[in-house]
Amino acid sequence: MRDLSLSTAIKLSLFAIVAASISVFAPAYALQQVAIAIAYAIAILGLNLLMGYAGQICLAQGTLFGVGAYVTAILNATYGVSPLATLPVAAAVSAAVGLLIGLPALRLQGLQLAIVTFGIAAAFPQLLLKLGSLTGGVSGLPVDAPETPGFMTDVPELWLYLIALACAGIGALLVSRVLFGDAGRALRAQRDNPQIAQALGVNLTRTRLWAFATSSALAGLGGGVFAIVSGFISPESFLAILSINIVIGSIVGGVTSMAGAFVGGLFMVFVPSWASDINLSLGNLIYGLALILIMMVARNGITGFIEKWISMIFRRAAG
């Protein structure tokens, strides 16, 4: 147990160092990009709980992210609610929508569940256009920048970055509460062997629904942060491919890792644009090959790969 808390402490301090150095060294524009990556990371945190621990797939995480973003934007643009105050509502509404999807969808499993949830992701952008009076249709909705504290007015991006980071911290705290206790054990138990889990008194449906709702709430929170950081949203930000990209971010980062969620978020934002920077006409080719390469060498994602190497080095050093 002491080893566990020690490694957690090391990870947390590493994380703090990285987060602090980004805020110091990154230029303002990059800071905003990182804040968007963190918004995705919050959604991935949820998906990791659902995919990695509950063993359920959801190809509508981008949609639930979009629902959160629109809740924030509508509350702010239409009703004048301060942006930060919309975030809990965004999480709650997405959780409710997630439950609505999850209730019928969890009768299905695996491949069928993937298709059903992707159907929702495919329908969502059009739905946003149809509900134009509420969502602003194709022209989208603006979101006010949250009031920046005085000493930071030179770099409002820094404030956005800190907001995103704080929300991610809350999300990570929530997920760790669930994972490092009985609920997390029950989740893994029903994933690894549902029949035995049932014999141990685990309520499969309820456990899976809670996982779905928690995952959706985080998607909604991430979406709200995305709306605030972007300052403007439109249906184009929430096309079906976003849900696939979130799944990719989750798997590339490491589907059972909380740090992996952040790696995945950064991957989603930066790697495709780096690939295009290398060669504009071959961007997709480079990106695709990068994905293939990563999965060949790092089956458990980038964080899994790093952890494997670190533990190997430690073992070598120990003897």
């Binding site: 509460r177 206790g181 054990r185 035995i196 685990v202 809670w210």
Partner: peptide, 29 residues
């Protein structure tokens, strides 16, 4: 065998008391 191979021995045994001492999701959050 109805064990969870990837969990520790302690975790496996603690699962036995899930129905009595289980912290639900709601409680955990």
């Amino acid at each position: 065998l109805g064990i969870y191979a990837s969990m520790t021995v302690l975790e496996n045994v603690m699962l036995g008391a899930h129905h009595r001492l289980g912290g639900s999701f709601a409680k955990a959050i």
